[in-house]
Design a protein around this nucleic acid. Sequence first.
DNA 1: GCGTGTGAACTGGTTCACAGCG
DNA 2: CGCTGTGAACCAGTTCACACGC
Lengths: 217, 217
Amino acid sequence: MKTKLPKAVIERLNLVYGLCDKLLEAGTTRISSREIGEALEIPAHTVRKDINFLGEIGDTGAGYEVSRLRTHLAVELGLDHARRACIVGLGRLGSALLEYDWDKTSDFEVVAGFDASINRLETIRSPISLFPAYEIPEVVRREQIELALLTVPRKAAKPAGKLLAEGGIRGIINFTSVSLGPLPERTAVRNLNLVNELRVLSSLVHLQEIENLERSN
Amino acid sequence: MKTKLPKAVIERLNLVYGLCDKLLEAGTTRISSREIGEALEIPAHTVRKDINFLGEIGDTGAGYEVSRLRTHLAVELGLDHARRACIVGLGRLGSALLEYDWDKTSDFEVVAGFDASINRLETIRSPISLFPAYEIPEVVRREQIELALLTVPRKAAKPAGKLLAEGGIRGIINFTSVSLGPLPERTAVRNLNLVNELRVLSSLVHLQEIENLERSN
DNA sequence: GCGTGTGAACTGGTTCACAGCG
DNA sequence: CGCTGTGAACCAGTTCACACGC
């Protein structure tokens, strides 16, 4: 089994997986690489290459059977069972994520929220259990939480990351603008910095402006 | 002027820009590529290459002067003036972003919010002006809004994208799980699919589990 | 003929290694 | 002597083109 998937491939395959969900909902049973590519804005040959990283699954000349493809991707990408997740930092963004309806996708289950402020914890009304931040290691371990969404203020990011690692967390999405620094090898981190995303978008707009200027010369 | 920056380079340079902000806040005036790399978890030679895409700016043997670097990046990346932005779709995530304190970074200014539900618009109390969705083209044009954060339900994504394009929007961050489909050439789009991010994180965890298993054989 | 699977060619981004300057 | 800047070497991922099965 290939364990050497390029990150870009992993990202695209997960998009394909998500597309399969939608297709099944809509009752579509077969789909070609070209159609997948159109829906996802990816070239068809890239779609085929990507899918083939995980072994043959398509029917020559007839595209892919959606449900088979979906199952296949789920197994290979580790989406075949719901993973338990928590949200660390219940400010605006954290609260929004806490209340998000993750159940629509059965791939995750948010089972806990943490915040440093006891005050805030008492204010929030949620069906999900909330705990003070210092209990992170204990709760993460006890509740077998694998994933964390980190939405704390930047000062609190590194300490929170450390507490999560102590509890044996396996993956963190870091919404913070600081990197978490050295964590145990086994911990996967994805940085998702909203301010940076917005800046990158500005840059893209800016570079395009320049290009347009030059083209008109 | 180089207009051919690889996307990965643009992303990293924006991180460097953000780092400069923090450094100035902290009173740091000089920094080497190695130190930048450590803070951002990027190899030092990559940092140097990236910065050099935009021309020489460092002092041989003595690193970079932070404020000069910051200004340089701002000019080249188009971050030298605040861009006007709006939020489309005021559900949980949209509202959270609406109330986010963007002013901390002077790079953006959220000047409008939109939602299809008049009801919801009347409920939300915000210093930022709110409008019904059908007014998007008019308001975007009138208010000279360049950027949009799209946080609508997936059914509403494509139509909303179209309205934004009509108003002459320049860039969209699409938080939706669907691609916006063909938009005018000049519109930059960045897809930021939270569910997919979480899935990718699961995949990374999964692939690592496999690797660990194999290593123990 | 259509559409998958895949080796081979290509592209471009990353890494290396060192020259050059303060 | 430290650290930048950069051409050259390297490598990874993408694209191409076509063989093969339905």
